[in-house]
Simulated scan of single mutants.
Amino acid sequence: MKCDKKNLLLYAVTDRSWLGDKTLAEQTEEALKGGVTFVQIREKELDREHFREEAEELKALCARYQVPFVINDDVDLALEVDADGVHVGQSDMEAGDVRKKLGPDKIIGVSARTVSQALLAQQHGADYLGVGAVFHTSSKADAAEVDFETLKEICKAVDIPVIAIGGISEENMGQLAGSGICGVAVISAIFAKPDVKKAARELKKAVEEMVAEGEEACR
């Protein structure tokens, strides 16, 4: 599955912190039912065997909903389970090396915080950029925030789609209008909510309005 701009509207990053009595697959399916358009599995503590099992389960689930599924950081695991692609940070494998390993048909997302990082990622074959943190976030306490002007400059500098990530909620979403992003990546704004499906549905509506408002302002 290739990466289309419209798939990046509401990008959900999994986090088992809020599973409660649900499985990761059950919680992710609730998000998909609510309208999530892209899923990234992110596991920092899980052992490899269980990570692989969950990745295979989520891959099959996302395929049923025709939503792209990528793995955070782990290029080898993405290959093993035949995920749609991988998302790498600046300290992970460089995009060009990822492309060599995964081949031409997989989706590669790269985190960027500066225009130079964004241009380099594009040059090396990234399909989309995740830029942030645009607001303070507890999921990456050490992540430096990227201001609105930098986000806008990155969007102008590259030809590939850009999504914003980091501390985004329905309440602060409007502040990103006019930046040039085509969507947002969220974790707690969906998965920390008591009703994941409802949270995804409401957030998707807010993203659609924010993107439309930004496009209108640019005309």
Rank of each mutant, 00 (worst) to 15 (best):
M1C: 09
M1V: 14
D4W: 12
K5G: 06
K5C: 07
N7T: 06
N7A: 03
L9K: 02
A12D: 07
V13H: 05
V13F: 13
T14V: 09
T14R: 08
T14D: 10
D15N: 13
S17T: 11
K22E: 11
T23G: 12
T23R: 07
E26R: 12
E26Q: 15
E29V: 11
E30Y: 07
E30I: 11
L32M: 13
G35F: 10
G35I: 09
V36N: 00
T37V: 14
V39L: 01
V39I: 14
Q40P: 03
I41P: 00
E43Q: 08
E45H: 15
E49S: 12
H50M: 12
F51L: 13
F51I: 01
E54V: 13
E56V: 09
L58W: 00
L58V: 09
L61F: 09
A63T: 02
A63G: 07
Y65R: 15
Q66V: 11
P68M: 02
V70L: 05
V70H: 10
I71N: 08
V75T: 04
E80R: 11
E80S: 08
V81W: 01
A83M: 04
A83G: 07
D84R: 05
D84E: 03
G85M: 04
V88K: 05
G89H: 00
G89P: 06
Q90N: 01
S91Y: 07
S91C: 09
S91W: 08
E94K: 11
A95H: 00
R99K: 14
L102Q: 10
P104G: 09
K106N: 03
G109I: 06
A112W: 03
T114A: 09
T114W: 03
Q123G: 05
G125A: 14
D127T: 01
G130Y: 02
F135D: 04
F135I: 08
H136G: 13
T137L: 12
T137W: 11
S139C: 14
K140F: 06
D142T: 10
D142W: 12
E145S: 14
V146Y: 02
E149F: 13
T150R: 15
L151C: 02
K152W: 12
K152G: 02
I154T: 02
C155Y: 03
P161N: 07
A164F: 13
G167E: 12
E170C: 11
Q175R: 14
S179E: 11
G180D: 08
I181Q: 01
G183N: 05
A185W: 05
V186F: 08
F191V: 01
A192Y: 00
P194R: 03
V196I: 15
A199E: 10
A200Q: 04
L203C: 09
K205C: 05
A206C: 13
M210N: 00
V211G: 03
V211D: 03
A212P: 01
E213D: 07
E213Y: 00
E216T: 03
C218K: 12
